[in-house]
Amino acid sequence: MTNQTRQIAIYGKGGIGKSTTAGNLSAALSCLGKKTAQIGCDPKADSVNTLMGGDFIETISDITRQYGSSETSLNRAVYRGFNNIVCIESGGPVPGQGCAGRGVLVALDLIRKYRFFEKNNIDIALYDVLGDIVCGGFAQPIRHSYAEEVYIVTSGEYMSLYAANNIAASIKLFAQQGLNVRMAGIIGNLRNVEKEEEIITGFAQKLGVPVVQFIPRSELVQKAELQGKTVIEAYPESGQAGIYFNLAAKVLDNREMFIPEPVSKQEVIRLLDLARTEIC
């Protein structure tokens, strides 16, 4: 019997730390013995940089444009990074042209069509998906038969919570449409906003989902990034690496899934206000 691949999607506002978190999570999971794949679903195509020694890899979009959509093209787009992690970028057009969402869809279809995860015995596939769900294309990873387990990365800032809330709303909608997609929890990537943990915890409670892990802001992240590495690879003994290992262990163990209950914009603001009033 072929090994069932656990497919996980990491969503969150642009620049909030999805790729950083996904890269470290992949690295930690691979160190825990799991065959891991990370698929960047962002035309920026920098998701797997820290797994690839800082290199940008050729994307599925680039390759299919040149060579057409075939299994050979797909294999051409597969790179092996740190600890033999499978690294793929869906890619997309240059900014201001074409349809990036369609690019994500095509890349994922290609992976499914050629049963890539099954053939390569992948245990865990992580989709690192661009910012907000801006159109149907970027919702692809959590549509039919792809990732059914979603983690949302957020800080305690309004825009980030706002985006997280939107993603939760999409998950709820898809669940109501009969899809199996569920939310596993929130990853709080801290930006050192005051009362940040309280804000994120309050937000998670409103949504009815757990905070899986708080990740503190650490200069090791940037230091490792400059070397083209994850914290796991560059500073495996550090406290920050320990936190990513913790996250990996929780993800591995986690069996609980939720249909989130998104809140109104007003409520997001009220949460922030509450925290601020308490500070004053």
């Binding site: 959509s69 997309g92 057009p93 240059v94 042209q97 074409g98 990036a100």
Partner: peptide, 9 residues
Amino acid sequence: QDDVISGGA
């Protein structure tokens, strides 16, 4: 399809 993704200009 590739042109739809990258633009057909």
